[in-house]
Write a protein that binds this DNA or RNA. Structure first.
Lengths: 342, 342
DNA sequence: ACCACATGCTGAATCGTGTCAGCAGGATAG
DNA sequence: CTATCCTGCTGACACGATTCAGCATGTGGT
């Protein structure tokens, strides 16, 4: 701070060349500008000896680029998993020599506007507009004409590039997991579509129905409840009281699966002995249950990475939806076909 | 982008004054510089009419300040709760008209060094050096002479200001919760200190022991296990097999509590009817258990806020540890004295 | 001997702002 | 009438980089 830092002039002086030449070397224009290899070498070693680091603000002032990506989200944190989106974003940013600045709107439009203003003032090179829960959004006008990628959401006009988890394919793989294990008996879904703008529910349901239909074993039914552990417990508990004995449960998220586990235990039903269970989200919670539940993973890390890669890459951004594959976090909640009685 | 943005020159021209005068007005130096009130007004309205926003990079180039705080962490995400630290940081930053840039080192020293370099290159006004798990750290040399606040960690030399959860007081309040509920029978701790540099375990143990000693009912014993659901289940399960019947369990974190719940259920023990349970961390997991477990909350949001406030504030940063209070997330895992039988 | 051309480099303008030093002109003092 | 002071403003340099246009010098062709 106190010591005046090394500037390009210092480097140039040390290398015995002009500032211009030094600049060309550092910006990889040495070739095109016909700088002699020997001179290039002199500049390079001057940089190394002096520990020169370019002043980012000065560069920004000239070039209007900052090597910075803004990530704007309604809730960075609250969702246990969503924050791994930041992990992905941060990693991708580093690879591209960028930095990530974050803004959390907490669902408040005014707060969001302020964050956007701050980011634009700082001339971020691109903005990731993210939602915790997959949903349809109205992108603020202030982002028009900016480099924007929507993460886990889409705008109604489809005028921005968007990244969404491929829930449909994910749902199919959940059903396939059950099929491969040779699950006998009826397959039921637990949960339903809770909020109006949320997209995951319907897509998951569609994928499940499709896959089951193709297998010739249509969905036995749906136990409807909000996507929370407590609600799921109560719903499944009452449902089991009626005497139904399902072969498998497809829980629409891990918290629902947790509630279902609790209810199954109360009724003396063993997982996977009596009932198989698969779930969605792939949170750590899935691994904490006994037995761990097989869960279709929300690809938050990949979403974060892909979004930042799109923004830092040179390619044009085209408005279109990209469906990001969901992996399966394996569990012991489905019988193992190889060793069925282990 | 295409349209050249409004600069201070435009404002000055419109107000019919020099750039200097406009600058003085905007920096609140009008008074000291004896700018006539009428002139001030003219500049103000020119700013409003033109929608002028100062160019941050140009300001930085002159002043060497960026109104930006860097948050450097080993794992922003993986810990379900830690990310609320970012929520706090982001909120506090907004209040101070600052922005937060993040860097996740994933425990890799080289990666950390790169992130630090990027942040220093961008001349952040301060850095929050954070750890997911409370621990003793060695702060990289590159941060010497920078404005740094340690969050959830301390350096051995105690040469930086540090924020730590007040685990000791938190542990006492956990025990008090049990005492107030009139818990009968022996109190046992589940868990132990798992990793060498982690600080939370010993502090929690110390607080628990102190509080119990003061109550005249010393700790009955410790069921030792790593801080994970599965390990806790196995440990508690085996322990219960030996016939012990505890009055209350103090679980050293929520995942341990989850494992303990599973084992208690296997042995037909009811919470809180047969055994009371309190826990630490205050994650959402605590609320998902049946019944929800009372848990001493890690104050991540507050830590984030306080760290950023310290860095954006004008006060000197003094090397010292500040213990941040931990709240109690209420649960139904302890009998309610008012209505003991529900 | 002359022009054309390639080679290897540099001078100077520019980005938008902050701020020191100083300048006109009127009021006041001696 | 001159010297001094205050009021209200402005000129010009600096921050550290990028980049266009141009300037010597050598080299080959006719």
């Amino acid at each position: 701070m106190a010591v005046r830092s090394v500037t390009l002039v210092d480097v140039a002086r040390r290398a015995g060349v002009s500032r211009t030449t030094a600049s060309y070397v550092l910006n990889g224009r040495a070739e095109r500008m016909r700088i002699a290899p020997l001179t290039v070498e002199r500049v390079r070693s001057a940089v190394a000896e002096l520990g020169y680091r370019p002043n980012r603000s000065a560069q920004t002032l000239r070039t209007s680029t900052t090597s910075t990506i803004g990530v704007l989200s309604d809730h960075v944190a609250s969702g246990h998993y969503a924050s791994s989106m930041l992990t992905g974003a941060s990693a991708a940013a580093r690879r591209a020599d960028h930095l990530v600045v974050i803004g959390e709107s907490e669902g408040d439009v005014d707060l969001e506007a302020l964050h956007i203003q701050e980011m634009l003032d700082r001339q971020v090179d691109g903005i990731v507009y993210a939602r915790l829960v997959t949903s349809t959004v109205i992108v603020p006008d202030s982002l028009r004409d900016q480099r924007v990628v929507l993460l886990n959401c889409v705008d109604e006009q489809r005028s921005y590039p968007a990244l969404l988890p491929d829930e449909r394919a994910g749902a199919r793989s959940a059903v396939e997991t059950l099929a491969e294990a040779g699950v006998a008996g009826d397959v039921w879904v637990v949960g339903d579509d809770p909020t109006p703008h949320a997209l995951a529910g319907p897509l998951r349901m569609a994928g499940i129905r499709e896959a089951l239909d193709e297998l010739g074993t249509p969905l036995a039914g749906v136990v409807s409840c909000p996507w929370a552990a407590r609600d799921a417990h109560d719903a499944v508990h009452h449902w089991l009281m009626s005497g139904v004995r399902p072969g498998a449960l497809v829980c629409l998220n891990d918290r629902v699966a947790m509630g279902a586990y609790q209810a199954l235990a109360t009724h003396g039903l063993d997982v996977p002995g009596d009932v198989s269970v698969v779930s969605f989200d792939g949170t750590e919670l899935a691994t904490w249950l006994r037995p761990p539940v097989a869960s279709v993973e929300l690809p938050y890390t990949a979403l974060g990475e892909l979004a930042v890669e799109a923004l830092t890459g040179a390619e044009e951004l085209t408005p279109s939806i990209r469906w990001v594959p969901m992996g399966l976090v394996p569990g012991r909640s489905v019988p193992d076909r190889e060793r069925p009685f282990h």
